[in-house]
Design a protein around this nucleic acid. Structure first.
Lengths: 210, 210
DNA sequence: CGGGCTATTGTGGAAATCCGCATCGGGAGA
DNA sequence: TCTCCCGATGCGGATTTCCACAATAGCCCG
C-alpha cells in the first residue's frame, strides 16, 4: 500500500472505445493504448458502435467529430438518449467553439484538438476510465437499494416514508388510519427487507441515494 | 400563486457584472440588460472587478476573454482562488477551442462567441442568475447548519456522531466509556441545539449536507 | 471568590419501541 | 378447494428512550 509498484502501470477497469472512420487513425490510436496497457477497441462508424452498444459496457468513448454517416455529436446524442453514462472524449481536427461548448455542456468529459499530445490523451482516457469505474460502483449500490425497495409492499413503503420523515409510530398510525401495532409490523418488515437495524440507518440509506 | 402576473417579466435576484475593457460594448450590454429589467453593472477591467469583489455579491459575471491587463481567464482563476461561486459566462470575439474547453471544465457556465444573439445571451444570463440564487439558498442552509454544529461541545459532537451512526445509547455509553445517563443528557443537548426532535431528523440533516 | 459552563452520574417514572404469539379476512395461485 | 401472502389487530412483556429533579467536580471569567 506504499505506492512503490513498478508493475504494468495501470490496471484498467474498462475499455476505451475508439470511434473514427479513418482506419489509419484507428490503428494509430489502438497501437497507442495497447502500448500503454489500456484495453482498446475500435469502431469504424457511429452506427457500428451504436449497434453494439449495451448498457453493461464499461469504459469510455473516444469520439471523432467529423465522420461519414453519423457524426460524433450525433452519436453522442443518440447514446445520451439511450441513457448511456460512459464518459466521452471528443477528438477533432478542426476547431469549432460552438461544438465544443455544446458537447461539454451535455456532459462530455473533454474536447481535444488533433494533433494532441499522446501522453495527455492517454492520461485523460485513464481518468475517464477511472471515473466510469467509480460511477459504476455507485450505481451498483443504488441498484441493490432499488431492488430492495422493489420487494416492499405498498403499505410498507408508505410506512417507511413516514418513518424516514422522523415521525413516531403513533403519529404514523394516526396518519394512515391504522393501529399502532400494524405500523410496528410493517416497520419491522421494512427494516428486515432493507437490511437495517434502526430507523437512522434507513434514513441514511434513502437520503444519500435517491 | 397562480402565475398570472404580467409584471416586468422577470424579478432578477441578482446583478449581472459585465467585465469588458471596451466602453462601447459595456454600454451596449448595459442597455440590453436594462431594457430587459435585468440589473447590470459594468467594470472596465478585471482588476477593477477583483478589487470590488466580495463574497456576498449575488448574481453572475459576463466576462470578455481578451482584455488589456488581466484577461478573462486570469480573472476567472483569481476569482476561483478566492472561493467565488458566481456563475461565469464568457464572451469572446475570436474562437479558441482550448480556451473554451478549459473555461468550461473549470466550471464556467457558458462560453459564447460574439456577435451572439441578444435573446440567447439574456436567457443564459437569467439562467445564471437563477442558478446563483438557488445555490445561494442551499449554501445559506449549510451555513446555519455549520453555525449550529459550532455550538456543540466536543463531547456532544462525539455522541452525535455515534447517534447518527445508528447506535443505541447503551452502545454509545460503552464506546465512550461513560454512563448511559450521560449519553442521554448529551443527546438531548444535541437535539436541542440542532433544532430537531428525533435521531432520524438529525441523520437527514447531516447526511444531506456535509 | 462566586457564577456560569461542561462533564458526569443517579433515581424513578412516563412514553415509545421492539417482538413473539395468536387471530381474521381477502386475493392469487396450485 | 386449500394454501400462501398481505394487511390489520390485540395482548403482554422486555428494552429503550425521554425527562424532571438532584448532585459533584473542574475550569474560566469578572
Amino acid at each position: 500500500m506504499t505506492g512503490l509498484s513498478s508493475a504494468p502501470s495501470t490496471v484498467t477497469p474498462g475499455t476505451v472505445h475508439i470511434v473514427d472512420d479513418d482506419e489509419a487513425i484507428r490503428d494509430s490510436l489502438l497501437w497507442l493504448f495497447q502500448s500503454r496497457s489500456v484495453a482498446a477497441h475500435a469502431w469504424a462508424s457511429g452506427e457500428a458502435f451504436l449497434d453494439a452498444y449495451h448498457p453493461d459496457m464499461a469504459g469510455c468513448i473516444l469520439l471523432d467529430i467529423r465522420m461519414d454517416g453519423m457524426t460524433g455529436p450525433e452519436l453522442f446524442d443518440a447514446l445520451l438518449a439511450r441513457g448511456c453514462r460512459l464518459p466521452v472524449i471528443f477528438l477533432t481536427g478542426h476547431g469549432d467553439v460552438p461544438a465544443a461548448v455544446a458537447a461539454l455542456k451535455k456532459g462530455a468529459m473533454d474536447f481535444m484538438e488533433k494533433p494532441c499530445d499522446d501522453n495527455a490523451l492517454v492520461d485523460r482516457v485513464i481518468e475517464a476510465l477511472a471515473h466510469d469505474a467509480e460511477q459504476r460502483a455507485r450505481t451498483a449500490g443504488q441498484a441493490t437499494l432499488a431492488a430492495r425497495l422493489a420487494t416492499l409492499t405498498q403499505r410498507e413503503r408508505q410506512v417507511m416514508e413516514l418513518v424516514v420523515a422522523g415521525k413516531l409510530n403513533k403519529v404514523i398510525a394516526d396518519d394512515l388510519g391504522i393501529s399502532m401495532r400494524t405500523v410496528e409490523v410493517h416497520r419491522a418488515h421494512v427494516f428486515e427487507k432493507m437490511g437495517v437495524k434502526t430507523a437512522v440507518e434507513l434514513a441514511r440509506l434513502l437520503v444519500s441515494a435517491p
